[in-house]
Amino acid sequence: MALMNMIQALNSALDVKLDQDPDTLIFGEDVGYFGGVFRVTEGLQKKYGLKRCFDTPISEGGIIATAVGMGAYGLRPVVEIQFADYILPAFDQLISEAARLRYRSGGEFTAPITVRSPYGGGIFGGQTHSQSPEALFAHVTGLKTVIPSNPYDAKGLLLASIECDDPVIFLEPKRLYNGPFDGHPDQKLSTWANSGDPKAEVPEGHYTVPLGKAEVVRPGSDVTVLAYGTMVYVAKAGIEEAGVDAELIDLRSIVPLDIDTIEQSVAKTGRCVILHEASRYAGIGGELSALVQERCFWALKSPIERVTGWDTPYPHAFEWDYFPGPKRLAQALKRTMENS
């Protein structure tokens, strides 16, 4: 075990995989010699050579198309899209090709690719470095969408994603790269190393965290809070502020979704608040809300609440007005308790 931040944990996952599997290779913009703009691939080219970790043209569509072709050949490419905001030129490749190749070819060809991409806000990155596009991918059957919230999960989920035979969109909350963040931008920040968080303890070798298995981060009896990525730590703070006995679930992957853990929790608490950073309309919260309503209606004691980013483009100067912080969650939790 070693103390790692999320960047080091992701780097360790890639290191382990490159070492174990000669069919795994990494490419993307600036990932080679430089090691990526967030340093996730640092040192890998030096250690494994040019062919295992190399730079690409600035062409997201080209990167994904190349990866799909390599996947069809039998390799397991892990590609980086520098920011999730830049993934849209590759949308056709992801949706019409990667997600559909197995189905439409009757299983003859598959695309076992992993697409890593830093995502989410809270870093004053403005509209083009802050968005949370997970719902766009979750809507497309054939793609898996994975979002870790801490170093331990990041490494285990990334290894599971690379080993998965389906294409995986692996979204890395960049606000969490260096330390946990509870949604209070004015407070002193801790690094993962000095946070005392047990999730900063990361095994050096190979392990996986299974896709589709949520984690109950905090057990509770009054209300279920569903969150993922950056919002897991925000949820912890919001629950404390509200002073309610909430059960906090870190979904860890949106597709596949751990519906059993969600159902069991809401059946117990009878209340549900969903928290995500992405804007609200047609977001993941809508789907989660529908599922909880369909499956737990008779257990519900109050309306399901969604706490989300607003339905605006990601606003630069208004970042903390947009960001669904602990205060907004605490208000929702109190409303939920009062409404029942």
């Binding site: 198309a65 190349t66 072709g69 090709e97």
Partner: peptide, 17 residues
């Protein structure tokens, strides 16, 4: 696929593999 040209890059990736 019915989407035009979407496999052209796959051929390049396949060849690179």
């Amino acid at each position: 696929s019915g989407n035009l040209g979407s496999r052209y890059g796959h051929a390049v990736g396949w060849a690179m593999a």
